[in-house]
């Protein structure tokens, strides 16, 4: 019975974390948890304290107050244990010159004390996952930016970490490279890895992350799933509906349903603003069908992270 009631240990648990650089306070007492297998998006303007928080979890930065736990281990209690559990990719990917991709990955495999006989297979596996097999004997410094980023991901995966800390992995990449990195991250998420990812590209995070944390001036403004954040902010979801006939009557009918905030009749469609927590899009569709309208188009707009971000932040830095 005791086993059943035990709360699972979150992969990341940050409690009242403070980080200072001299008199400058970068992070002001933030707290949040990331359960296992979640993809947590860390959003915030430059200087918000995202990288500092990630550096604490990567055991590179001593917190001034508070606690940062990775899989139940406090970063100051056993940093070496955390280093084995975690893979860190910084925002600036400096790579060693004069090494080939193979040598670079073998270098880090050796740094993680991977048994020598397993290294060839391991390198092959991570290169297959990041689609870099064909670059095995290329010089690292001759790779394109996107490939370097993929190589960085391959390096992070060498010791099969449970937690991935990715600081701006998509910054400076062209659209194709960004999509490739996003697909790799989705694959890693499917493999059960816990991922903490910071980014400025909000649209991409909303497609990838199961939870979001918005940070500004060292303070965590909000944290939770996108739906939870929308609910908390009282934001509406917009649904576009096109019916074969009688849009005016349908608009009047929908206006009386609980959860529908407004219905706007446009030339070719109805734009309906709903409270997603009260009326999910699928229930709205049922209502329209029950009314007897023939639906030509039903298009709920993706919840926009930008809206939440702009509503929460004021553009200040710590």
């Amino acid at each position: 019975m005791t086993e059943l009631t035990k709360t699972p240990v979150p992969m990341v648990d940050i409690r009242n974390l403070w980080i200072k650089y001299g008199s400058f306070i970068a992070v002001r007492g933030i707290s949040f948890k990331i359960p296992r297998g979640e993809v947590f998006g860390f959003i915030g303007p430059n200087g918000a304290g995202k990288s500092s928080t990630i550096r604490v979890l990567a055991t590179l930065q001593q917190p001034n107050a508070g606690y940062a736990l990775v899989d139940g281990v406090e970063v100051r209690q056993d940093p070496m244990k955390i280093r084995r559990k975690m893979g860190y990719m910084p925002d600036s990917f400096g790579l060693y010159e004069g090494l080939t991709v193979r040598e670079y990955l073998h270098f880090f495999a050796a740094a993680y004390d991977t048994p020598e006989e397993r290294r060839d297979r391991l390198v092959d596996d991570v290169l297959a996952l990041t689609d870099l097999r064909f670059k095995l004997d290329s010089q690292v410094d001759g790779l394109s930016r996107g490939m370097k980023q993929r190589l960085g991901l391959a390096r992070v995966l060498l010791h099969d970490p449970e937690l991935l800390l990715l600081d701006e992995p998509a910054s400076g990449l062209d659209p194709r490279a960004r999509i490739e990195v996003r697909e790799i991250l989705k694959e890693l998420s499917r493999m059960g890895k816990t991922i903490l990812i910071s980014s400025h590209i909000l649209h991409e995070l909303s497609q990838l992350c199961t939870r979001i944390g918005i940070l500004e001036a060292g303070t965590l403004l909000t944290e939770g799933s996108l739906e939870e954040i929308y609910h908390r902010l009282g934001l509406m979801q917009l649904v576009h509906v096109q019916v074969v006939s009688g849009p005016q009557e349908l608009a009047t009918h929908l206006g009386s349903i609980n959860g529908v905030e407004s219905v706007e009749v446009q030339a070719d469609r109805l734009s309906i603003r709903v409270r997603a927590e009260l009326l999910p899009p699928e229930d709205l569709l049922d209502h329209i069908r029950e009314f007897g309208a023939r639906v030509r188009m039903f298009q709920p707009e993706a919840m926009e992270l930008e809206t939440a971000f702009m509503k929460l932040t004021q553009g200040t830095t710590a």
């Binding site: 990567a58 070496m80 740094a111």
Partner: peptide
């Protein structure tokens, strides 16, 4: 200077 130190420091090498 080459920004390679932080990655090296997150490995379990003492």
């Amino acid at each position: 200077s080459r920004q390679t130190l932080s990655v090296l420091l997150t490995t379990p090498l003492s």
